[in-house]
Lab assay of single mutants.
Amino acid sequence: TEEFVRLWREAVRHNQTLHWNGTDFIPGDEWAEEFARREEEKL
């Protein structure tokens, strides 16, 4: 979602874990980066 992408970019900028829907998205984590890339492509 647009909100997820916005929060993810913020988390990456501050190198912080994003807690989203009970899942931890960690900047630099391969799975999280791939998920975020797919979400961005949907926008």
Rank of each mutant, 00 (worst) to 15 (best):
A36F: 12
E40I: 15
I26Q: 12
D24N: 10
R13V: 11
R9N: 09
R13L: 15
T17E: 03
E40Y: 13
V5E: 03
T1R: 14
L7F: 05
L7M: 09
R37W: 04
D24M: 11
H14T: 15
V12N: 04
E33I: 11
R9A: 10
T1W: 14
F35H: 06
W31M: 08
V5G: 02
G22S: 06
N15R: 10
T23F: 15
E34C: 15
L7P: 00
E41I: 12
V5T: 07
R37A: 10
E39D: 02
F25I: 03
L18G: 01
D29V: 10
A36I: 06
R38G: 08
W31H: 06
A11S: 06
W31V: 08
F4Q: 00
R13K: 15
K42I: 07
E2Q: 13
Q16T: 14
L7E: 04
E41Y: 12
L18V: 06
D29K: 04
E39Y: 14
R9W: 13
E3F: 07
E3L: 12
P27I: 04
E10N: 08
E30Y: 11
F35I: 06
Q16F: 13
E33G: 04
W31K: 08
H19S: 12
W31T: 06
E2M: 13
P27Q: 03
D24Q: 10
L43Q: 06
R13H: 09
R38N: 09
R38W: 06
N21W: 11
A36G: 06
E10L: 11
E10T: 05
V5W: 09
Q16V: 14
F4A: 01
W20S: 01
E34M: 12
E10K: 07
H14R: 15
E34W: 12
H19D: 03
T17N: 05
T23L: 15
A11L: 03
E30G: 10
A32G: 03
R6G: 04
E41M: 14
L18Y: 02
F25M: 07
R13G: 06
P27W: 02
E34G: 09
K42V: 05
A36K: 02
Q16H: 11
L43P: 03
E2F: 12
E10Q: 09
D29G: 03
A11V: 02
E2P: 09
W8V: 02
F25K: 02
D24W: 13
W20P: 00
R9G: 07
Q16I: 14
P27G: 02
P27K: 02
E40T: 11
R37N: 05
R38E: 05
N21K: 14
V12M: 08
A11D: 00
L7S: 06
W31P: 03
Q16L: 14
L7C: 14
L18P: 00
E10W: 13
L7N: 05
A11F: 04
D24G: 03
E39C: 15
T1E: 08
F35V: 07
T23S: 10
R13D: 08
A11N: 00
V12A: 05
E10F: 08
A36E: 01
R13I: 13
A11K: 02
L18D: 00
F4M: 01
V12K: 14
H19N: 11
N15W: 10
L43N: 05
T1V: 13
A36S: 04
A32P: 02
G22A: 06
D29Q: 09
H19V: 10
N15M: 10
E30I: 13
L43V: 07
L43H: 06
P27H: 02
E10M: 08
W20H: 04
E39K: 09
K42G: 05
T17S: 08
T23I: 15
E30F: 12
R37Y: 05
E41Q: 14
G22V: 02
E33M: 11
Q16R: 14
T23D: 07
E3C: 15
E33R: 06
E3Y: 08
R38H: 10
F35S: 01
R9S: 05
I26K: 13
H19G: 03
T23E: 10
G22P: 00
W31L: 06
D29A: 07
T1N: 12
W8E: 01
R13E: 12
R9T: 06
G28A: 02
L18T: 01
T17P: 13
G28H: 03
R9F: 09
E40C: 14
F4R: 00
A36V: 10
I26E: 09
E30R: 13
P27M: 03
E10A: 07
E30S: 13
W8Q: 01
E2R: 14
H14W: 12
F25Q: 00
F25N: 01
N21A: 12
A11I: 02
E40F: 14
R6P: 03
N15C: 12
L43Y: 09
R6Y: 11
A11E: 00
L43S: 06
H14Q: 15
D29M: 08
V5Y: 06
R37K: 11
F35G: 00
R38S: 10
A32K: 01
E2A: 15
R6A: 07
E34A: 14
V12L: 09
F35D: 00
V5A: 04
E10G: 01
A32T: 03
F4K: 00
W31E: 07
R38C: 13
N21F: 13
E39L: 15
E34R: 10
T23Q: 15
L7H: 06
W31G: 05
W20V: 03
L18H: 01
T23P: 01
V5R: 04
W20L: 05
F35M: 06
A11H: 05
T17A: 12
R13Y: 12
L7Q: 09
D29T: 11
N21Q: 15
F4C: 07
V5Q: 04
A36C: 09
T1C: 15
T17K: 10
E39T: 15
I26R: 14
R13F: 13
E10R: 07
T17M: 10
W20F: 10
R13W: 11
E34P: 01
G28N: 04
E2W: 14
R13C: 15
E2K: 12
F25L: 10
V12F: 04
E3R: 08
A11W: 05
T17C: 14
P27E: 01
W8T: 00
H19I: 08
R13A: 15
L18E: 00
E40M: 15
R9P: 01
R6S: 05
R38F: 07
A36T: 03
A32F: 03
G22E: 05
G28E: 02
E40N: 08
L43R: 05
E41G: 09
V12Q: 10
E34S: 11
E34F: 07
L18N: 01
L18W: 02
W31C: 13
K42D: 03
P27F: 03
T17D: 01
A36R: 02
E2T: 10
E41S: 12
R37H: 07
R6M: 09
V12C: 02
L7A: 12
E30Q: 13
E33F: 05
E2Y: 13
V5K: 03
F25Y: 14
T23M: 15
N15V: 04
L43D: 04
E34Q: 13
N15K: 12
F35T: 03
E30P: 15
A32R: 02
H14D: 11
A32L: 03
L7W: 04
Q16W: 13
W31Q: 08
K42M: 08
E33W: 07
T23R: 15
V12P: 00
K42E: 04
H19M: 06
D29L: 06
R13P: 00
R6V: 07
W8R: 01
E41W: 12
G22H: 07
G22Q: 05
E10H: 09
W20M: 03
R37M: 08
F4T: 00
R37E: 04
D29F: 04
E33D: 07
N15Y: 06
I26W: 06
T1M: 14
E39G: 05
D24V: 13
P27D: 01
W8F: 02
G28R: 03
Q16S: 10
W8C: 06
T1G: 14
H14V: 12
R37T: 05
T23A: 12
T23V: 15
H19T: 13
E40G: 07
W20R: 02
V5D: 03
W31N: 06
T1A: 14
W8P: 00
A32V: 03
L18A: 03
T1L: 13
R9K: 13
F35W: 10
N21D: 09
F25E: 01
R37Q: 07
R6E: 07
R9L: 11
E30L: 14
H14Y: 14
A36H: 02
E33C: 11
A36L: 05
F4W: 09
H19K: 10
F4N: 00
E39M: 15
L18I: 06
E33Q: 09
A32N: 01
N15G: 14
K42W: 08
E33V: 08
K42T: 06
D24L: 14
R38I: 09
T17W: 09
F4L: 02
W20G: 01
R6L: 10
P27R: 02
Q16G: 05
R6F: 11
H14N: 15
R13Q: 13
E30H: 12
W20D: 00
E39H: 10
N15S: 09
E40S: 10
